[in-house]
Deep mutational scan, measured.
Amino acid sequence: MFYPNSPQTSPQLTQIPYGQQYAMMQRQIQQPYHPFATTEPQARLYPYHYQGPIQQEQGGFITQQSTAASPQYVQMRVTPVDQSIMSGYPNQTANGSSSSSFNYNIHPQQQQQQQQQQQQLRHHAMPVGSVPLQDDRYRKQLIVNYLAPDVTSTDLHELFSRFGELDGARIIYDKQTNMSKGYGFVYFCHAEDAKEAVERMSGYEFHGKWLKVGYSTNPLNIVPSNSSPYVHAGSRGAAG
Rank of each mutant, 00 (worst) to 15 (best):
Q114D: 06
P132T: 04
K175M: 04
F185K: 00
Q120M: 12
S70V: 12
H232L: 11
A94F: 13
R200Q: 11
F160W: 09
Y22I: 07
Q176L: 04
I143P: 03
Q110Y: 10
S153M: 14
Y138G: 06
N145M: 01
Q28T: 09
F2I: 04
S161A: 10
N145Y: 02
H107Q: 04
R122D: 02
G96L: 11
L121V: 07
A23K: 02
P47T: 14
Q42W: 14
Q58I: 15
A68G: 12
S100R: 12
E205Q: 04
D193K: 02
Y22D: 06
V198D: 01
T154Y: 15
N105P: 07
E158H: 08
S98H: 13
D136N: 06
R27N: 06
G88W: 15
Q109W: 15
Q12C: 07
S87M: 09
A148H: 12
V78F: 15
Q113I: 10
A191E: 08
T177K: 08
Q51Y: 14
T9F: 15
A169N: 03
Y204M: 12
D174H: 10
I16W: 15
K181I: 01
N5H: 10
Y215V: 01
G184N: 04
P11Y: 15
H107E: 03
T39Y: 10
I171Q: 02
S153L: 04
Q64I: 15
N95S: 11
T217M: 02
N226P: 06
Q26M: 07
D193G: 07
Q58E: 04
G234K: 09
S87N: 06
P80C: 14
Q117C: 07
S130I: 05
P127N: 07
Q31F: 10
I54H: 08
V198W: 05
Q115M: 13
Y22A: 11
F2C: 03
S10A: 13
S228K: 08
G19N: 10
L121T: 07
F160K: 01
S99P: 12
Q134I: 11
F188W: 03
Y138W: 04
F206C: 02
S70W: 15
S84F: 15
P108M: 15
Q72L: 14
H124W: 15
G182A: 11
Y50H: 05
V223H: 05
S70P: 14
D136C: 02
Q112V: 12
V186W: 06
E192L: 03
Y215G: 00
Y33M: 13
R162Y: 12
L13D: 05
Q51H: 13
G168W: 01
R162S: 13
A23I: 13
S84C: 13
F163G: 08
H232K: 01
Q26K: 12
M76W: 14
R200E: 06
T154S: 09
S161V: 14
Q119I: 12
F61Y: 13
Y3G: 04
P17Y: 14
N226H: 06
E57H: 15
L133Y: 03
Y146A: 00
T152W: 06
G129M: 11
R162D: 11
F188V: 04
T154G: 07
A233L: 12
A191H: 02
S227M: 11
V81Y: 11
E196C: 07
A148G: 06
P219D: 00
S180H: 10
F206S: 01
K209H: 00
Q113L: 12
K195I: 08
P224G: 03
L45S: 06
R162P: 13
A94K: 04
A94W: 09
T79R: 07
L142V: 07
N105K: 05
P80Q: 05
A23D: 07
Q8L: 13
Q176E: 12
Q141L: 00
P71T: 12
P47H: 09
L159V: 04
Q56N: 12
P7K: 10
Q120V: 14
R200F: 10
R236P: 05
Q114K: 08
V74H: 05
T63P: 09
H123D: 07
Y89L: 06
G214H: 03
Q120C: 05
S6V: 12
K140P: 01
Y204A: 03
Q117W: 15
T63F: 15
V74L: 10
Y215N: 00
D82P: 08
G182R: 07
T39M: 15
H232Y: 08
N218E: 00
Q15N: 03
A69T: 12
S97L: 12
S228R: 11
D174C: 09
Q118T: 06
L133F: 15
A238N: 11
S161N: 08
T14K: 06
K212I: 00
S180T: 13
I143L: 01
A239V: 11
L45C: 10
Q114E: 06
Y22P: 05
H34P: 11
Y73A: 08
G52I: 13
R137N: 05
Y18I: 05
S87W: 15
S202N: 08
G96W: 11
A169M: 00
T177M: 06
Q8C: 09
N178H: 14
L45N: 03
P35L: 14
G168H: 02
Q64M: 15
Q110A: 12
V186F: 09
A239S: 04
A148Y: 05
S227F: 14
S87L: 11
Y50K: 02
Q116L: 13
T217L: 04
G19F: 14
K140M: 02
Q92R: 09
S180V: 10
H124D: 11
M179S: 07
Y18E: 07
N218K: 01
N91M: 13
Q58R: 11
S66V: 12
K140Y: 01
Q42C: 09
Q65N: 05
Q110N: 06
H49M: 13
S216I: 00
I143S: 00
S235Q: 10
K195D: 02
P108V: 13
R77H: 11
Q115N: 10
Q83K: 12
Q58M: 15
H49S: 09
Q20H: 14
A197C: 06
L133T: 05
T14H: 03
Y89I: 06
A197S: 04
T9S: 10
P47W: 15
N145C: 06
G129V: 06
M24I: 14
S228W: 09
G234S: 10
A37L: 10
G164N: 02
Q114M: 05
Q111L: 12
Q116A: 07
I172N: 00
N218C: 00
A94I: 10
E192D: 09
A68R: 12
P17R: 05
V131G: 05
T63E: 13
Q30H: 02
Y22C: 06
S87I: 12
R77S: 09
S153G: 11
P7H: 13
I54S: 06
Y48M: 08
V144H: 03
Q42F: 14
K212M: 01
Q134L: 09
S153N: 07
Q75C: 14
D174G: 01
P132W: 03
S70R: 05
L220I: 13
Y48T: 05
G237V: 12
T154N: 12
Y104T: 08
Y204Q: 05
T67Y: 14
A194C: 03
M86Y: 04
A125F: 15
P17H: 14
L45R: 11
T152M: 09
Q8M: 12
Q112N: 10
Q64A: 10
L13H: 07
P108F: 06
Q134N: 06
I172M: 02
E40Q: 12
G240A: 09
I62P: 05
L166D: 05
L211D: 00
Q120F: 15
Q26Y: 14
D150W: 07
T177H: 03
H207I: 00
M86N: 01
A23P: 10
I171V: 09
L147T: 04
W210Q: 03
Y230R: 04
I85C: 13
K212L: 00
M86H: 07
Y48C: 13
P41S: 04
S100L: 15
Q116H: 05
P41L: 09
S84V: 14
A238V: 09
P229F: 12
N221V: 06
Y187R: 01
P11F: 14
Y48R: 05
L133C: 10
P11S: 06
V151D: 01
Y46H: 11
L13S: 02
Y230Q: 07
Q141A: 01
Y104E: 06
G234Y: 03
Y50C: 11
G59I: 15
S6N: 12
A148F: 01
G208P: 02
Y173E: 04
G184K: 02
L166R: 07
S228E: 05
E205C: 11
M126K: 05
Y104W: 11
N226I: 05
Q141W: 00
T14P: 07
P108A: 09
S100C: 13
P4S: 12
S100G: 12
